[in-house]
């Protein structure tokens, strides 16, 4: 009995923070999504106007579709890059200290500012940026490419740049836990390198891939700042829809969009969690 009480006391601070700053805000958003708004204030009500407007607008569907598209493309790219990098680190680097050093090299940017990392693409991608200058010098193009910055290209480039780490770390983690004897057995049984990769390593790495997928998909779907900054406000996703409404003080409308976004994200996560037991995989 005292064990349970101790456990509850130990879990209490976390629970309290989550109640006050996660669950209460979600509840508040759900409540406010039924409220009404004038140009400068919001008032309590119980009306479905916000949802009716949201689902009645063609823009909503377009923006949700765009959001899914960003998530899908970013997911495919981060998975391909992240898997390759993790595979190299886990199976091709032989010395453990080199392995740790290279792994840290990959993770350090995670602990620096995302906004600065976005800003740092500007000298590369701008009209007179490094990329265009180089391509012109090489004679590959004559006019600077306009679509490098402030386009879907730059948005996805930034997503991949910011979030590939979230694939590398969990995939590397699961790869390191694969018993080397299994790989040796595959080789003894005559498997080629590719067959070992395809039939031994990939299936055993699935939990890591799932965790990475959860991170990348939720980060991209909930993003508003990368899309705004890297597209020069010319592209939209759901997060920007919400932040625009907030900017116009239309909190109930922002809340309704937020509720729909949250349900969408949780559904995606719910599906992904069926494939992996997070607590076991850490």
């Amino acid at each position: 009995m005292t064990r349970t009480v101790t456990a509850w006391l130990q879990a209490a601070p976390l629970t309290l923070v989550l109640l006050c700053f996660l669950l209460a805000p979600i509840a508040m958003i759900v409540v406010v999504s039924f409220w009404g708004a004038t140009e400068y204030s919001i008032y309590p009500a119980f009306q479905f106007d916000n949802y009716a407007y949201l689902f009645g607008s063609e823009v909503t569907y377009r923006v949700f579709l765009a959001t899914f598209r960003y998530a899908a493309i970013t997911w495919a790219l981060t998975l391909a890059i992240g898997f390759t990098v993790a595979y190299f680190l886990a199976f091709h680097v032989r010395s453990q200290s080199v392995q740790i050093a290279l792994f840290l090299l990959c993770t350090i940017p995670f602990w620096t500012s995302n906004i600065i990392r976005m800003i740092s693409w500007i000298p590369f991608l701008g009209r007179n940026g490094i990329a265009n200058q180089t391509l012109i010098d090489w004679g590959l193009i004559e006019q600077p490419l306009e679509w490098l910055l402030y386009s879907d290209f730059s948005v996805i480039l930034a997503f991949v740049h910011l979030y590939t780490l979230f694939m590398v770390v969990p995939i590397f983690n699961t790869m390191m836990r694969i018993d080397p004897a299994l790989i040796e057995a595959a080789r003894d049984a005559g498997a080629t390198g590719y067959q070992t990769l395809r039939h031994v390593i990939v299936p055993l790495t699935k939990p890591g891939i799932m965790i990475g997928t959860i991170f990348v998909v939720t980060l991209v779907m909930g993003d508003f700042i990368t899309v705004r900054f890297m597209s020069g406000s010319q592209r939209a996703n759901v997060g920007r829809l919400i932040s625009n409404d907030i900017g116009l003080l239309q909190y109930p409308s922002a809340a309704a969009t937020a509720v729909v976004l949250l349900i969408t994200v949780l559904m995606v996560i719910g599906i992904l969690l069926r494939f992996v037991n997070i607590r076991k995989e850490l």
Binding site: F21, P25, I29, I214, G222, G239, Y251, A258, V265
Partner: peptide, 11 residues
Amino acid sequence: VIPSILISLGV
């Protein structure tokens, strides 16, 4: 996994 802007908005 919750989109950060929801926390911002709700709080």
